[in-house]
Amino acid sequence: NDMPWVVKPEEKMKFDSIFESLGPAGGMLTGDKVKPVLLNSKLPVDILGRVWELSDLDRDGMLDRDEFSVAMYLVYRALEGEPVPMSLPPPLVPPSKR
């Protein structure tokens, strides 16, 4: 599956730097580190809950840098008025997790 990831390299760099600034442990950010960042978007908590569901692809309660990029992508799109999908469209699944 060589479909390009919808997260563009420039955007990925921005998301990666936010990821690093949050102090990941072992390459992972726990929910309590990511939660305040997402709350900062002022989006409704039920929307953020769905963003988390869609981003935490392995359901381990933590986000690695690719999962975090998916979360940030969805938050930014939601802030632009795009609805958060009910399930993750294939182009949004990080190439590393297909």
């Binding site: 929910g31 988390w52 569901e53 309660g61």
Partner: peptide, 13 residues
């Protein structure tokens, strides 16, 4: 790690 009630891994639930 998550509040009581939680088998959930979602910090927003």
């Amino acid at each position: 790690q998550y509040p009581a009630g939680g088998s959930s891994t979602n910090p927003f639930l």
